[in-house]
Each structure stands twice: as structure tokens, then as C-alpha cells.
Simulated assay, not measured.
Amino acid sequence: MSDLRIRAATPDDLDTVLAFWKTAAEGTSISDDRAGVERLVGRDPEALILAEQHGEQGAELVGTVIAGFDGWRCHLYRLAVHPQHRRQGVGSALLTAAEERFVRLGGRRGDAMVLTRNETAHHAWRAAGYTPEENWRRWVKPFGD
């Protein structure tokens, strides 16, 4: 029987995480590159949380979430679970770890970036107690090229 473990990512995990997101994450982000994830982990070493399945074959990355706290708001990004490990509690374990981190840091409410078209994610977020806030719209402006 395998064992699920939750831990913060280290710089040694970043290539594995980026490859994992290509399989498990819906959509891409302007920051989905080595430099972007290095900045995240360098600035906040506990923000990128990993779920690993440990078994006879060693550790396998099965889920991620970014739990960023800027001192004011608690932001959740990149909740991704490997398709073969969905509906097994991995996402719930990651969100519990993220929420515990936020509470420890003084956070009061989490908000999640969820793609409008990702209906599977909508069900997962609702099951975790999150609801859409329809009166807000995300506005973005990329910097640089």
C-alpha cells in the first residue's frame, strides 16, 4: 500500500513540477517556466506544495498547489492532480495543507484562480467549500514581451 505525503517543493523539484503540469494542469500560465517557478520558491519557499505518493517504487508526484500569501490575501493557483490519482483525496489533502498555511500566516480567506471552462475543477472546488464570486472579474496585463 502506498502513502500520500504533503511537503513544500525545493529547487530540486522544479523540473519535475513543470513536466507534471503539462500532464495534470489545465491550461498554461505566463509563469509556467523554470525562471518563474524559481522566483516563487526563492521568494516564498513554502508556497509550492507537493503531494507525493510513496510506495515500493519510491516517490511519485501526484499533485500540486501554489498557496501564495502576500500579507493581505491568500491566493491559490495550480491545484493539479494527476489524472490517474483524481478522486482519491489528493486535492483535498493539498487544500488542507494550503489552508493551514494561510491560517498560520494570519490569512482570513482564500481565493482560487479557476478556469471558467474547467468544469471538473469547478466540482472539486465546490466540494472543498469554495464558491464563485461572480461580481468580480480578473483583469490582467502582461509585463515585458
Rank of each mutant, 00 (worst) to 15 (best):
L105W: 02
R109Q: 12
E60Q: 14
Q57A: 12
Y130T: 02
N118E: 11
L61K: 06
R86D: 00
S92C: 01
H123A: 08
Y77H: 03
W136K: 08
A127I: 10
H123Q: 09
D44S: 09
V41W: 07
G71I: 14
G110E: 14
E56T: 15
T116Y: 05
G36Y: 04
A98F: 01
L95K: 04
A97S: 02
D13E: 10
A121T: 01
V90C: 00
T131D: 09
A25K: 00
I6C: 02
D44W: 07
L79A: 02
Y130V: 00
R117C: 06
G58A: 09
P132I: 00
I49Q: 05
W136H: 14
L94V: 12
H54V: 14
R104L: 08
H54F: 11
S92Q: 08
T64L: 05
K141V: 05
A51S: 12
D44C: 12
G110A: 15
R34H: 04
T120G: 01
V114M: 07
L50V: 05
L61G: 11
D44A: 12
K141P: 12
R78L: 13
R78S: 14
R86C: 01
T64E: 03
A35N: 04
G58R: 05
A128E: 06
R78A: 14
V90N: 00
P11H: 13
A19P: 05
M113A: 14
D111C: 01
T116L: 04
D111W: 02
I30H: 06
E134Y: 11
I49A: 03
A9E: 09
D3I: 07
T120Q: 08
R73V: 08
Q53C: 10
D44Q: 14
F102D: 05
Q84D: 07
L4D: 02
E60P: 14
C74A: 07
W125Q: 00
E119R: 15
H85V: 01
Q84R: 10
E52V: 03
A128S: 06
R117P: 01
V114P: 11
H75L: 05
E60Y: 06
F102K: 01
F69C: 00
V140D: 13
V37Y: 06
E26T: 02
